[in-house]
Design a protein around this nucleic acid. Sequence first.
RNA 1: CGGGAUGUGGCGCAGUUGGUUAGCGUGCUGGUCUGGGGGACCAGAGGCCGUGAGUUCGAGUCUCACCAUCCCGACCA
Length: 490
Amino acid sequence: MAKNFPTREENYSQWYNDLVIKADLAENSAVRGCMVIKPYGFAIWEKMQAALDKMFKDTGHQNAYFPIFIPKSFFNKEASHVKGFAKECAVVTHYRLKISEDGKEIVVDEDAKLEEELIIRPTSETIIWDTYKKWIQSYRDLPILVNQWANVVRWEMRTRLFLRTTEFLWQEGHTAHATKEEAVEETEKILNIYTDFAENWMAVPVIRGTKSPNERFAGAIETYCIEALMQDGKALQSGTSHFLGQNFAKAFDVKFLTKENKLEYVWATSWGVSTRLMGALIMAHSDDNGLVLPPKLAPIQVVIIPIYKKKEHLELISEKANQIKKLLEKKGISVKYDDRDTHKPGWKFSEYEFKGVPVRLVIGPRDLENETIEVARRDTLEKEVLQITDIENKIENLLKQIQSNLFQKALSFREDNTFIIDTWDEFKERIEKGGFILAYWDGTAETEQKIKDETKATIRTIPIENLHEEGECIYTGKPSKQRVVFARAY
RNA sequence: CGGGAUGUGGCGCAGUUGGUUAGCGUGCUGGUCUGGGGGACCAGAGGCCGUGAGUUCGAGUCUCACCAUCCCGACCA
């Protein structure tokens, strides 16, 4: 275990913060609320990007790029959209600096005031729909299936590394369709991609559903989401896919001629996942010994560490290690052979364990004699000595096992922490201990707000699957069509 | 923006009722012995004590102001 590293039990939020910093994923920057993503952390993000990007492209989407600045007036055009974002926008008002009169400082040149202020994008619907207006005239121009990888800025009051930062990285898809059905289908298709990614790449089980009106995206008709449960019993919204109806088409006057030569507004969707996924990944699997990464997203999947006393030993071991490295790499496994003489083996063990490398291989003089190798897995911390024959297949299988074990572990954690609750007293008691609560809700915003005020719990999602039997609202006793998922959230 | 706290070598901290040359852990540099779970010893380098005023013979220490950061709330992917 790392020195002075808190356990989850002692202080979960400090455990998380320390983990991010000590595992070299990211650190706070000189700019309040903004983080520096360090190479190791960014490597994980790049693997996420690569996997998602392929999924988007495989379903017909293309990448494009729109400006970081949005004219202020664009935000006026969609009423609920501006309401949702106005309070957290960074605004550019000037375009030039100058030397102050006493020559000591650099100050804003008041003469360089912008005619119209520019907003640093908190999301890009407005600039994109202003652009789509030019792209769309006919049903033949539809659909438009565009995604952009970008940074956005939301001036949040309180920030936490990856979970909520002032600037964050994300992808935002913005699609335009001729019919409502097609747009809804797109929204759901993306939700399925997000689910697939969360569960099969991140090994994080998620609940798919829609948001209550209170939690809906500003400007959306319907917001679909995936919700994950973290180890401290809090929920984390991990991705959203919005059906925007014709709201933005109307706001930006985007119409097209149908086959029947009728002028109609375009139907829209938007969807995104952000670097917040890093937070979900970290919190879902890691333990008191540090980070635990699912093999599919680990920048280093296998580390090989030599143990030797003399230089001659190292040469022999290196030869063997490099052979194994090549065999594994042929299987597409990323391997690091750490033969640095500047750190001791024990130090390296701790280091890679803390950084969540799924598999560690150790070769020493003993192994050379016996044709063996020590294999340690990060998820269970188990070690065993294996015959070196066929090592590449053994490791390949082990990585698959680790991937599915992590998912299973997270899934049973979620199951153990999901509760069907039917009385208000039980609800209040349970919410203190965390977890997902499945309870009936009368469907009104007032009730949701009251529950939030009294317990800090929100409706995380109205699940798509199951739970469609009727009952009585946990708070008001009024009729309810189905159970929804309550939790305290990040 | 409300409540609480903290600013001292890179990082984490100590520094008594004000008193001489500001310490400790870790990290860093060099060396010797080491090496199957964060090694031992030796020798080094590294400080405008957050900023600015004040009190005093004397301020890391007391007073005031400012700045910054962190934690807890309200806001949020």
